[in-house]
Write a protein that binds this DNA or RNA. Structure first.
Length: 391
RNA sequence: GGAGGGGUGCCGGAGUGGUUAAUCGGAACAGUCUGUAAAACUGUCGCCCUGACGGGCUACACAGGUUCGAACCCUGUCCCCUCCA
């Protein structure tokens, strides 16, 4: 069960309210990612104070460590991590993509070789639901098969069909109705597959619908197009969740295409690597230009970090690899995202979203698309050389 | 005073006759990060020309020498370190 109330639509952008067992979540909403039951570097109170009402945790990671039963014994994930806001859990479907070298997918489910110790574990749709129910998440996701954008159409089709079957199996075993179960549309970069996916899933009655399999190496333009087309096919009265998307410009673009819920590891991860969001784009605090900048990173920012510290100090903390650096950067970026999403919501309610969007995008310089994609490939290559040993 | 060891690019440190503008770290400079295997990764890193391929020049304390060819061998000079007196 989840109660979604649509308050306003301007253009395609929607503002609404999602009622969960842990409070009402205003949409559009962005969930910071806390895969292992922690939004890295911050306390739950800090996350809450930054205006975040829902976070994302991950079934695969929590299953491996500390284990689902442990969390159950500790009173559920909310209690375990002392977070009283809403929790959305990913099923582990993303790890099919991100840990593609460590898993095998069959119709039955996914077998992973643990990235921690190499041991084997099988995740089925039924187990994914069971685990997420045990964690006590407010919104849980079906197990899906998320694969890269450059896979063949046949592969994408097969993954999509399999995801549909898995969705049905998840629905069948889903018992705890105070938790909402969302289905995930797949179909890669092919509009006609996306259409089939939505048709197949909306025939079943899910509490909400997610768009998965995007932001997996394709161009932004493609992400936006597929999002727009898919969202337009989804039932208007159900929440729509675009999985894994959340650079500032992406949020603005995709709210404008009808998305209500986002989650993204980007703001927090990028923060830990020295990148600060500003209205004019992302800046790298490690750049030499900040060495003696007395002003904060963003002079009119009201976050704790910018209220107290010069860019020069942050620059120094990052160069020294002081742990405080990662916290201060995370605070700033989440404050930035929080302000952004709240402005978006306000301007939707005021019928001013279109002009807000135009102005924001005009001022915000996105990263170079070509370097982005080539660097991503290189990163994947570098990482695949550090895989655990075959047994 | 005696005995021994050593001086390599911004720093540390490999190399000990040719395939070496010189492995590897670090620093520096820039870029990337999207349902988190991430406090990670990538590129550049002597000077000049080129968008790049590539080309030219100067280089392994200094000076001289041996050799077709030297960071690497020889001689001298300067400097540093360790031990003994």
């Amino acid at each position: 069960m989840s109660n979604f109330r649509l308050l306003k639509i301007t253009g395609k952008a929607r503002a609404g309210e999602l009622t969960t067992a842990h409070g009402i979540v205003s949409t559009p909403v962005l969930c910071p990612v806390g895969s292992q039951g922690s939004v890295k570097t911050l306390t739950p109170q800090e996350v809450k104070d930054l205006g975040m009402n829902m976070i994302l945790a991950n079934t695969y990671h929590l299953y491996l460590r500390p284990g689902i039963t442990t969390i159950e014994k500790m009173g559920g994930l909310h209690k375990f991590m002392d977070w009283d806001g809403a929790i959305l859990t990913d099923s582990g479907g993303y790890q099919v993509f991100s840990l593609s070298k460590l898993r095998k997918v069959t119709d039955e489910g996914v077998t992973f070789r643990s990235h921690i110790d190499g041991s084997q574990h099988t995740l089925t749709p039924e187990l994914a639901v069971q685990y997420q129910e045990a964690l006590g998440a407010d919104i849980i996701m079906v197990l899906d098969e998320c694969i890269g954008h450059d896979e063949s159409r046949d592969r994408l089709f097969a993954a999509m069909v399999r995801t549909h079957h898995w969705a049905e199996r998840c629905l069948k075993v889903h018992k705890k109705t105070e938790q909402a179960l969302f289905a995930i549309a797949q179909g890669g970069i092919y509009p006609e597959l996306r259409k089939r996916s939505v048709e197949a899933l909306t025939k079943l009655n899910f509490d909400g619908y997610a768009i998965g399999g995007l932001s997996v190496g394709e161009q932004k333009r493609v992400t936006f197009d597929i999002t727009e087309e898919t969202a337009s096919l989804l039932p208007p009265d159900k929440p729509r969740y675009l999985m894994g998307v959340g650079a500032p410009e992406d949020i603005v673009e995709c709210v404008g295409r009808g998305i209500d819920i986002f989650d993204c590891a980007l703001p927090t991860r990028v923060a830990r690597n020295g990148a600060f969001y500003t209205k004019t784009g992302r800046v790298d605090i490690l750049n030499a230009g900040f060495r003696e900048q007395k002003e904060p990173v963003e002079s009119d920012c009201t976050c704790y970090t910018c209220q107290h510290f010069s860019a020069a100090y942050l620059h120094h903390l990052f160069r020294s690899k002081e742990l405080l650096a990662y916290r201060l950067a995370t605070i700033h970026n989440l404050a930035f995202m929080s302000n952004l999403i709240h402005s978006i919501r306000q301007t939707i309610l005021n019928d001013k979203f279109e002009s807000f969007k135009r102005e924001f995008l005009a001022g915000y310089k996105p990263t170079n698309e070509e370097t982005r994609l080539t660097q991503k490939k290189k990163w994947l290559e570098a990482r695949s050389e550090t895989l655990p040993e075959e047994d």
